[in-house]
Design a protein around this nucleic acid. Structure first.
Lengths: 306, 306
DNA sequence: CCCCAAAGGAAAATATCTTTCATAATGTGA
DNA sequence: TCACATTATGAAAGATATTTTCCTTTGGGG
């Protein structure tokens, strides 16, 4: 027990219990081929892998012990031994629990009802993965920075641009000066004016969208606190990010574009940021919140009561 | 290998999964004092012991490694390693049995980790509700109309405006001429030009947003097929809607504004529309889809392969 | 009081995990 | 296209953990 406590406090990142499949999905893109093979085996058959030794798993996946250990590390465990323990736990859980739901891909001839069910399931999965993989320390730091900020600039293009706007809408409502930029030139122009105590947030699934990285770099170099919301924690964008918030994306396919689950994931992160900031600035945020709450309630349901 | 052989000769008993506590009680009488201490520790705190190494457990119980191994054997495992694995499984089971407890409302002083869990849970709930309540007949009709449309106009303001834009981004990608309007005047101007075979979609959670209803009315009166995506299927907006798609919203509160879950719900509906249309227009949509899929894949992960 | 047998532990032997380092594969820029 | 830089990978050395061996201790009978 003592060890547990010490480890948690010392390591900072406690190893995941059942959020393993989530981590695999989240981190798979940033893995090398060999490591992906290992991760796949592990996610596919936790019980089977738990019975294997490093050497066994290495042979099974056609890799080396070193690669297995590297994969375990990437998944957040100190080494293979601990991954194996988590695997045993996972196996026990899913044996006692229910069978994993069907996760078939969406086909061209799926009836519409199936499409609804599959999309809903996928997005739920994405949410669970994101929540499990989100680093609350980083999130807390980002929240603190935003709450104390004089001004917040947010960069995002394409689908991420909409997420950026969503965050702006929310922050504005609680009195935080936030601006969304989708035009890279204007974004850089704005970034130049940022200083310490200002915050810049880049939202990019790929982590390598130049139009978004550039303004973040400028903001970073001007001393602003920078935050990256990305699905690739090892991507270029994190180079200029003080705090990295990792979004996860379920596997994608032709009829299920990446934009879909990455958007869901990004929105959850953004919501967390918002609620976090609202908590921190509750004194000032509360009036604004209830005001819009009241306004909406009054406008939308004048007679149905609640 | 040596282990296997011995195991087989020893009795062939497969290691116990969760019936560990029972085994301890059963076998305790036939144990020596030191072994009882070990068994006790193991049964008392599976999670804690799973984190310990043989040496650790030996020290904790004031015994030696050899005794720990002997105890493990007596409990039916080939060695301590396997006992430890079973322990990890047991711990995971116990933990998963514990209540989720995330159904509570978000409080001002909730730690950030709780916020994440609660938000994720809520949004998952919203998705499930929406999927369950969605009328697939209406959805199918809306999809058919969009797939056959010459042009699609989408109205939404505030948070719903972002959802409208999201749908536009997606539809554009598969070659559907879609436009989002957040300016009510321009929306009406555009609506005037719509005729039969065109589609107008209004997105409003409240179902009573005048700025969105007005253009939908105009479109309706000009003979366009009209769709309403709303959380109030009895609200004013449905008056002018040929097809109504109902979104659901989980309960809201001060720190959890309605915009959050309604947005999640709306996005799911919008995703379903998109996938439905993509299916129907697969011949023309497929090239566009794979093109953007490829483009993204190439641009974002030049080396991670598949 | 001495001897025996069971219990328990120290340390050697073995298996397992981790790290290091050299090599191969891959992308990059001229 | 080729040389170069970078990264990924596996073989083997090194470190830990587990198991076994064997010896010491303890607690009763003769």
């Amino acid at each position: 027990m003592t060890q547990d406590v010490k480890e948690i406090f010392a390591g900072g990142a406690p190893p995941a219990p059942a959020a393993l499949a989530a981590k695999v999905r989240t981190l798979a893109p940033s893995m090398t081929r060999s490591m992906q093979r290992v991760a796949e085996a592990v996610a596919g058959d936790p019980a089977g892998c738990a019975a294997l030794t490093v050497t066994g798993l290495a042979e099974l996946t056609g890799t080396s012990e070193a690669t297995v250990v590297r994969t375990a590390r990437l998944l957040g465990y100190p080494g293979y031994r601990d991954l194996r323990l988590a695997l045993a736990g996972l196996a026990a859980q899913q044996q006692s629990g229910r069978a994993p739901a069907v996760t078939a891909d969406i086909a061209v001839d799926d009836p519409i009802a199936d499409v609804v069910a599959k999309l809903a399931y996928d997005e739920q999965q994405t949410l669970a993965d994101t929540a499990a993989a989100l680093d609350t320390a980083q999130l807390g730091a980002a929240v603190a920075a935003i709450a104390a900020a004089r001004r917040v600039d947010i960069y995002g293009v394409g689908a991420s641009g909409l997420v950026a706007q969503d965050l702006v809408q929310k922050l504005m409502r609680i009195g935080v000066m936030a601006h969304a930029h989708s035009d890279p030139h204007l974004a850089v122009t704005g970034a130049v004016q940022l200083r310490a105590k200002d915050v810049a947030i880049a939202i990019t699934h790929s982590g390598s969208t130049g139009d978004v990285i550039e303004p973040l770099r400028v903001a970073f170099e001007h001393g602003a606190t920078t935050v990256a919301v990305t699905g690739r924690p090892s991507g270029p964008v994190t180079q200029y990010a003080d705090h990295v918030l990792t979004t996860s994306a379920a596997r994608e396919s032709e009829l299920r574009p990446a934009a879909m689950s990455s958007r869901t994931s990004q929105l959850l992160v953004v919501d967390c940021l918002f609620v976090g900031v609202a908590q921190r600035t509750y004194e000032t945020a509360a009036p604004a919140l209830s005001a819009s709450y009241e306004a909406l309630a009054h406008r939308h349901s004048p007679r149905t009561g609640r």
